[in-house]
Simulated scan of single mutants.
Amino acid sequence: MPRTSALCRGLTATAVLAVSVGCTVQPGVDGSPPDAKPGGVSPLGVSIGPAPDPATSSPEPVATPSSPAAGRTYSSAPAPTPPRTSAPPPAPRPSPSAPKPATLMAVGVQSDQVRELQARLRQIGHFDRSPTGYYGSVTASAVSSFQGKRGLPRTGTTDTVTWQRLLGMTEQPTRDELRPPTEKPVAKPDPRCLKGRVMCISKKSSTLAWMVNGEVKSAMDVRFGSEYTPTREGVFSVGWKSRDHVSTLYDSPMPYAMFFSGGQAVHYSSDFAARGYEGASHGCVNVRDEKKVAALFDEVRTGDKVVIYW
């Protein structure tokens, strides 16, 4: 018994010393029995914990300081990121205004280009008469109609955009399209005009066709008397001719007059050439084109037929 007590006291002293110096007790080195098994109970009755397995154990995580300042603090999660705010989109820059198309033709212009414009408009049904080369209210109305149907501003003037659109839809006018014999299409001849030499005059189309045995030799624009002095209708014949005639009743010149009924005659009218269909005769058949009526005067003979009809 005394030996056992001494041994216990020695072991106790050894254990106290190990704890005091911060060491661990290792079997077979620090005086523990060599036959002690890890995790078991030593013969002395001391419980020994299992030894750590270096293959499976991992070192205990060590916190790292978030800043080296005194009074270190440790963070296990990153600091929250402030929410992003999207910058407002840049204001759109004003687009430069497109230049206005240049005006090529307008009311009051008279030129061959206006004549071509009228011929092209006539090809697609916007101009219902022969080209004259003068840009008047009728031409402006036709241009406005064309612009409206093509989604263009209805200005009535022909600018570069209108002109290019018209060129793309039409063909180059022929000589007859540019300079037809009459402003309006020549009417279908009356059956009474199909035989012999006839001045075939239509009030509906305001045209005179000089015909020989059913063939049209020439045609020209004409106008008639007003409602108070109407031009007679029917079949007549040329009674006499006067190249430089002057009316004794109205004191007005009647060049190249070919009388067919009393004082009514076919002749050139300078008023018709200047004013067009805004005026009227005193019952005669006025011709606008002086060259054409002069040539007709040389062709017509006394006794040739004159047919006037609707």
Rank of each mutant, 00 (worst) to 15 (best):
R3W: 12
R3T: 11
A6F: 14
R9S: 10
R9H: 10
G10S: 12
G10N: 14
A15R: 01
V19P: 00
C23Y: 13
T24M: 12
V25G: 13
Q26F: 12
P27S: 09
G31K: 02
G31F: 03
S32E: 10
P33K: 06
P33C: 04
A36V: 15
K37G: 14
G39F: 07
V41E: 12
V41P: 02
P43E: 07
G45P: 05
P50K: 12
P52Q: 10
A55M: 14
T56K: 05
S57P: 03
P59T: 05
E60P: 11
P65C: 06
A69P: 01
R72C: 14
P78V: 11
P78Q: 08
A79H: 07
T85G: 02
S86H: 10
A87S: 10
P90S: 12
R93W: 13
P101I: 00
A102R: 04
L104M: 06
L104H: 06
A106C: 06
A106I: 05
V107P: 02
S111A: 02
D112H: 05
Q113N: 07
E116Y: 00
A119C: 06
R120T: 04
R120F: 08
G125R: 00
F127D: 04
T132M: 06
Y134K: 05
V138R: 11
S141I: 04
S145G: 07
F146L: 01
Q147C: 02
Q147Y: 01
G148A: 11
G151F: 07
R154T: 11
G156R: 01
G156I: 03
W163F: 06
Q164P: 06
R165F: 04
L166R: 00
Q172L: 08
P173Q: 04
T174G: 13
D176S: 15
L178N: 02
P181C: 15
E183C: 03
P189M: 13
P191N: 07
R192E: 14
L194R: 08
K195M: 10
K195E: 13
I201T: 04
S202C: 02
K204L: 15
T207Q: 08
L208I: 07
A209R: 04
N213P: 06
M220R: 09
F224S: 01
F224K: 05
E227R: 14
T231S: 09
E233K: 14
S237N: 06
W240R: 09
K241D: 02
D244Y: 11
D244I: 04
V246L: 08
T248K: 13
L249T: 12
S252Q: 14
M254G: 00
Y256F: 05
F259C: 07
F260L: 02
Q264T: 13
A265C: 09
A265K: 00
V266Q: 03
V266P: 02
H267D: 03
H267N: 03
S269H: 03
S270H: 15
A273W: 01
Y277T: 10
E278W: 08
A280D: 09
S281K: 01
S281H: 05
H282G: 09
V287S: 08
K292C: 11
E299G: 09
V300C: 03
R301Y: 09
R301N: 12
K305Y: 08
V307C: 04
